[in-house]
Design a protein around this nucleic acid. Structure first.
Length: 120
DNA sequence: CTTCTGACGAAAT
DNA sequence: CATTTCGCCAGAA
């Protein structure tokens, strides 16, 4: 059992992002929601600090409108390679590809607060 | 110590 | 649809 507050926020963000399944996406706000005690900006800051070649699937995090924030990156191609389809406006259908969060058992085992998450 | 700066979000205007 | 406001991490200057 990991102590939640003992792990830096950025590390907690990475832990959650690594749980997003292939072919699914989630939003900055949702990750912040799961991590707790931080906001969407913090998630962006955390991902911005990743190095090239990281194992963290950062491409699976998009903004609340289902759009890519990193224009000019290969994020869209990475997602399309996972089977995700973009509409004519360049948006992803979150009701179809959206991921709501880890299993409660995972949250408990990794020092997150399941109750806080589900009650919100 | 203070200020600035980035992959953001939701509600109000 | 466009803007503004607030929320509040971490490192550099």
């Amino acid at each position: 059992m990991v102590e939640p507050q003992a792990v830096p926020v950025f590390e907690r963000v990475y832990a959650v992002v690594c749980q997003i399944p292939v072919g699914r996406v989630t939003t900055y706000g949702q990750v912040a929601h799961i991590v707790g005690n931080c906001d969407a900006r913090t998630v962006g800051y955390a991902l911005a600090g990743l190095r090239e070649g990281t194992d963290v699937p950062w491409q699976r995090v998009v903004n609340s409108q289902g759009k890519i924030s990193l224009i000019g990156s290969d994020q869209r191609h990475r997602l399309e390679a996972e089977g995700i389809v973009f509409d004519a406006r360049g948006r992803i259908d979150l009701s179809r590809y959206g991921w709501s969060g880890p299993e409660q058992a995972w949250l408990e085992a990794n020092g997150f607060d399941p109750l806080w998450f589900w009650n919100r």
